[in-house]
């Protein structure tokens, strides 16, 4: 009896979680989503605000994550970051973050660009697509919902699917010279 009750509770939780997972927004938001302040320092005056962003807007949503995966190839992120393993650009599937792992920080990285080679895509990519890319980039190191992360590729599989990645505790690394990076 206890097992059955537990099953019911689990099923209820899973079905609640699944609501967000399959939601599809074909209509883009009419106005741009303003990114929250990008915090690169943990020191803040007054009360510490840790919630930085629109976390959860796309990270629990399977469609947005798979769109992010498609755009990651279409917009040639793979040209430098490969499929997450890194090449000219740093690896994205490890726990090391140079400019921060929070969604707002990744948003800023994409939109504003970063020194040492990351181009600035602001204005070239619609706002909601940047957020889809942010969610997908986070899923590469397991920071997005494992239930919603893509579990297959449309093309040849070059690595384990994002849904299988263990969540990795982000650590911040000082930017090193581009030549030292793998």
């Amino acid at each position: 009896m206890n097992v059955r009750a537990a099953c019911c509770v689990v099923a209820a939780i899973v079905s609640l979680a699944a609501c967000q997972r399959e939601k599809r927004d074909f209509e883009a938001p009419t106005k741009a989503v303003t990114p929250p302040p990008v915090r690169l320092s943990e020191i803040q005056p007054g009360a510490i605000s840790t919630k930085t962003s629109l976390e959860g807007k796309y990270e629990d949503n399977a469609f947005a994550l798979s769109e992010g995966k498609r755009l990651f190839g279409w917009y040639n992120c793979t040209g430098c970051h490969a499929h997450g393993g890194g090449d000219k650009g740093p690896a994205l599937m490890d726990r090391v973050w140079i400019y921060g792992s929070e969604p707002a920080q990744i948003y800023a990285t994409i939109v504003e660009g970063r020194p040492n080679g990351m181009p600035s895509f602001g204005g070239h990519i619609p706002d909601n697509e940047v957020w889809e890319l942010v969610a997908y980039v986070r899923s590469l190191s397991g920071l997005a919902s494992g239930m919603a992360s893509p579990n297959r590729s449309d093309t040849m599989h070059v690595k384990a699917p994002e849904s299988n990645v263990e969540a990795q505790q982000p650590v911040t690394a000082a930017p090193s010279g581009a030549s030292e990076r793998p």
Binding site: F26, E27, A28, T30, A32, R70, P126, E129
Partner: peptide, 16 residues
């Protein structure tokens, strides 16, 4: 301006 209005799901995004 809004391809999704005519062809929902197409890969072209709506434009601001």
């Amino acid at each position: 301006l809004d391809p999704q209005q005519f062809k929902p799901g197409a890969n072209m995004p709506s434009q601001n």
